[in-house]
Computed example of a mutant assay.
Amino acid sequence: MTIRVVTDSTAYLPEGFADRHRVDVVPLHVLVDGRSFTDGAELGPAELVQALRGHAMVSTSRPNPEDLAERYRALLADGASEVVSVHLSRELSGTWEAACRAAERVGNVRVVDSRSTAMGLGFAVLAAARAAGEGQTGERVEAAAVETAERTATWFCVPTMEYLRRGGRIGTAAALLGTALAVKPVLHIEDGRITGVEKVRTMSRAKARLIDLASTAAGTGRARLAVHHLGAKDQATLLAEELAARLPAAAGVLVSEVGAVIGAHTGPGVLGVVVLPESVESH
């Protein structure tokens, strides 16, 4: 029995992780001034930052269900007995819905809503891939993704909520309030949606709150951590170092730049932290 794991490009796994864990990644699409690009392959973080700072019109779209169906068929034809397809929150994108439609056309495909994105999705994908590599059933691979996603917590801060407002990912009133008061919001992905935690006056204070929140979530035991950024490598590296010092029991800190799809909605300068406390079974 061979189970193959599929995800979308918003998992933003560190370089080499997808190949190493036999994860098949389907790109989402980014439109820049009406021209369509695939996330990561045709448009990377640097190009996105340049487009946003040049005031280009940037939007995103889900994969076509038929493209997903073709990917599933190819994996099944290549020897997979079943496919487990794990995606970003249905509250943030139509990707999960597209995957469900594709699965209905193909069969032998399980679709999982991670209720998150970035490494909140990525940790769930890697758990599924490990279960698949151990020869687990499709049901157990799916359960590994679901259980891991439920334990994962994600927080992030942005210099401005303007990009979230443009993309319809947060209320207009909240965006205007943030702009008017020149505050830096600390945000949380809760049950698949973006919610506000608090507003602070500086990005430095926002970063400190990310560390506090991550530390509380990780507790005193082992935890897996990830730091995300867009166009803010130095700040992300410093944040990772501070987290590692604050949480010596943590199993390292991954640093990964978000790509064009998530970056289009957060804007340059975003910093995020994802925490996955280890379960008792993982010891």
Rank of each mutant, 00 (worst) to 15 (best):
R22I: 00
V111M: 07
L176N: 04
L247W: 03
T172L: 13
A99R: 13
S61D: 01
P248Y: 00
G16M: 10
S93C: 09
R205N: 07
K184P: 11
V186E: 01
A182Q: 15
W96Q: 01
L230Y: 04
G192D: 00
H228E: 05
R205D: 02
A99L: 08
V6W: 06
A102G: 11
V270N: 05
A18S: 08
G231N: 01
E198R: 14
C100Q: 14
L271Q: 03
L13R: 07
A208T: 14
G107N: 02
E91Y: 12
L210F: 04
T60C: 12
P185C: 09
R222M: 00
E104V: 12
A102Y: 08
W155T: 03
Y12N: 10
G122Q: 00
V49F: 13
E91G: 11
P63Q: 12
R130G: 03
E134V: 06
A127E: 00
G122V: 04
V5G: 04
G94H: 07
G196I: 09
A174L: 13
L68Y: 08
L52C: 11
R151L: 14
T202G: 11
A128L: 13
G231Q: 02
L75A: 03
S9W: 01
G269C: 12
A218F: 06
D33P: 14
E278M: 04
T154N: 08
V106H: 04
T117S: 10
L28H: 08
H188E: 12
E134L: 15
A153N: 12
V26A: 15
V158Q: 03
T179Y: 08
V25A: 06
L75S: 10
D191H: 13
A217E: 01
E97S: 15
D33Y: 08
A102R: 14
G107V: 08
T237V: 07
P268M: 05
A223S: 15
G231D: 05
E150W: 06
V186M: 11
G259D: 01
S204R: 15
A226D: 00
A240K: 03
E142W: 04
R130F: 00
A46G: 09
F123I: 03
H283V: 08
A180D: 02
L88G: 05
H188A: 10
V158W: 10
R110M: 09
Q136G: 12
T195E: 01
R105P: 06
G94I: 01
R205G: 09
A99M: 13
A69V: 07
E82W: 14
R205Y: 00
E281I: 11
E66Y: 13
A80Q: 12
